[in-house]
Design a protein around this nucleic acid. Structure first.
Lengths: 183, 183
DNA sequence: TGTTAATTTCAGAAATTACTGAAATGACAG
DNA sequence: CTGTCATTTCAGTAATTTCTGAAATTAACA
């Protein structure tokens, strides 16, 4: 595996960004490499393309599998594992958002509920702050769960015509009483 | 500064989560502490509450200021700096999302555009993949920018009634031709 | 079953990131 | 200007994370 200049840059960029995205450089690079390669790659190809150790590749792929970001493919008559990323970019986004929510949001939501369960502490402000935060996260994740339920095509439509949403809320509000109750 | 059990747990949780959120433990703890305290705190109070060094507090506050997540207040006749978080949680969310976008998305968008500028590389699949990715990010950030523009009250309405959005798209689509063009 | 090729694990090394104490800098009051 | 109190900087240390090579494990096939 040899990479063109552009491919190289793309891969290195994802490596650099990895740390900001909460994954490590190698994992970012492996993902980027798989992303731009049409054909599934095996561990040996990844190792040589990125100049990393074979074991590092193995650990990186394991991590990507934990994130559900890569697909494992096998070829008949070949013992090796081959990896790709999904063709559908929206599917990738869905996975990414779902996993980040699972790791970055859900544990905090649980913790906040747990703290509330153990009853008020006497610090009115702090208690209120915590339950406000819990409510806000519930609103956000509730909205996310609705969006997640939409088929991709509708989601894209919604986003593409997002600039008309403000007006839409009001127009719909006028026609549908539900939408006026909070405005 | 002494913390109740609940406060302690809240602060420690944010410390733990910090690493997943791309900030370090101390910064997470400082933020959590300021978040649940009604009164602005000075560096000395933070230092003693969290049992960290004074210089660590200073660096943490600097980081939080860079994220625009804390407000600096001064008291007449007191030389010390006092810090708080905004009362309005939605404002905090806006800041957080804006800053994360700036750090985690924008650099990649620039890089992708730059790679496209340097022209096709001969690898059709890779080129297509990169421009598809750039388009997707543009759609997402475009949508985000529209949402950002909405007043908080409308945003909350939209999210709270999110479950009716799917239907709304279709109903609006029927009434407004714009919304049917892509479905 | 044994042989071979591939993957995974893991202890230690390397690299990176976070934290501290001491010294420097800055800001205000007299 | 000087003294005092507060904040920042920074070099060194500590802690954590990442990476490697060697050994162990797993899987395919004859």
């Amino acid at each position: 595996m040899t990479l063109s200049n552009t491919q190289q840059e793309f891969v290195l960029h994802f490596g650099e960004m990895g740390s900001r995205w909460g994954i490590n450089r190698t994992v970012g690079q492996i993902y980027a490499l798989l992303f731009i390669c049409k054909k599934p790659l095996n561990a040996e190809e990844i190792t040589s393309a990125l100049h990393i150790s074979r074991s590092n590749t193995s650990m990186g792929l394991k991590e990507l599998q934990a994130w559900q970001l890569v697909r494992l493919k096998r070829r008949p008559g070949d013992r090796r594992d081959y990896f790709t990323t999904p063709d559908d970019l929206w599917e990738i986004v869905r996975t990414l958002v779902a996993e980040r929510k699972k790791r970055e949001i859900d544990p905090t939501l649980s913790k906040l509920r747990e703290l509330e369960m153990h009853g008020p502490t006497g610090d009115d402000y702090g208690d209120a702050r915590i339950s406000e935060l819990r409510e806000l996260i519930e609103t956000l994740t509730g909205f996310y769960e609705e969006m997640e339920r939409l088929e991709t095509q509708r989601l894209v439509t919604l986003m593409t015509y997002g600039s008309r949403l403000a007006g839409l809320i009001d127009k719909a509000g006028a026609a549908m009483p539900l939408f006026t109750s909070q405005t």
